[in-house]
């Protein structure tokens, strides 16, 4: 840019902040409306639904709790990076930034395994009520062991609360003619999973965005520190604001999808 833009680094005399910070807050305001619309849709769909599964029963709470811890920690390390840079400790600040970056990656890896698990978990709806393990049921959930055109070999999930004796159940054979619908726990399974994948997916995209920006500031963008220290700190602060917002969205997603 050849034109000198006022308030790029220096705070505006009236508002007391620089351009970037005002912009990032405006951006976050629009993000609030984006996720707000999704939460609003979630409430509407859930209150209109005849039945709605409890996330607790079909999602992995331990993995999500782990991810919550990871994201909260990354938020702390992000703000610590800013504090260290404010005190002039460039190398310490960079270390905290690197930790933030790796925690963000850990979050995505955990998320990947969660998603993968869902895509391998199936539900079968029967045409007529069928006897499975001594109970007459219309639908069962579990994993497919073998699939042919005529039948599937299906390993049902252990009944709820009997996880200790998980080794005892046997795969069963289900004829294709018995099956009304077969679906894995993908977004097409039900509105619960539609909401789950859309919201966590969009949140995941925000995490990826954060990784790109933090990665840039850690790598090539770090040169700015030596040229204009305040400008670099501003950028770290603004990135931090974005990153805390991503954390904040997860803080709501976690109970809304997994716990209730």
């Amino acid at each position: 840019m050849d034109v000198a833009i006022p308030c790029q680094v220096k705070p505006h005399p009236v508002t007391g902040i620089a351009n970037g910070k005002l912009a990032i807050w405006l951006f976050l305001a629009s993000e609030v409306m984006l996720f707000g619309a999704l939460f609003s849709s979630y409430i509407l769909l859930r209150t209109n639904a005849e039945t709605w599964p409890r996330g607790h029963d079909i999602l992995s709470v331990p993995l999500a709790t782990l991810n919550t811890a990871v994201l909260i920690t990354s938020s702390v390390t992000m703000v610590m990076a800013w504090a260290q840079l404010m005190m002039g400790n460039f190398s310490k600040g960079r270390k905290y930034l690197a930790v933030t970056l790796s925690l963000a990656c850990v979050f995505l890896v955990v998320k990947f395994f969660e998603y993968k698990d869902k895509f391998h978990h199936y539900q079968v709806w029967f045409n007529t009520p069928t006897m499975v393990a001594g109970h007459e049921v219309t639908t069962i959930t579990g994993h497919i062991e073998e699939k042919t055109d005529d039948f599937i070999k299906f390993l049902p999930d252990p009944p709820k609360g009997h996880k200790a004796e998980a080794g005892h159940h046997e795969p069963i054979k289900i004829e294709t003619s018995q099956i009304k619908r077969l679906s894995n726990y993908g977004p097409w399974h039900s509105n619960f999973f539609a909401v789950y994948f859309t919201m966590t997916g969009l949140h995941g995209l925000h995490v990826i965005g954060g990784i790109i920006v933090i990665g840039y500031l850690l790598g090539p963008g770090a040169k700015l520190w030596h040229r204009d220290r305040q400008f670099y700190i501003n950028r770290i602060e603004n990135t931090g604001l974005y990153w805390h917002f991503v954390d904040l969205v997860w803080i709501f997603l976690f109970p809304c999808l997994y716990l209730i």
Binding site: G16, K21, L22, W25, A29, G36, V79, G240, D247
Partner: peptide, 29 residues
């Protein structure tokens, strides 16, 4: 973490405007 406890007025104003519309959005369903 986001330092909203001691922020500049202009940010509160912006967030206040967004907050109003957020409430409307959440009232939608």
């Amino acid at each position: 973490f986001m330092h909203l406890i001691s922020e500049k007025k202009v940010i509160y104003v912006m967030l206040g405007i967004a907050g109003m519309f957020f409430v409307v959005l959440m009232a939608l369903p």
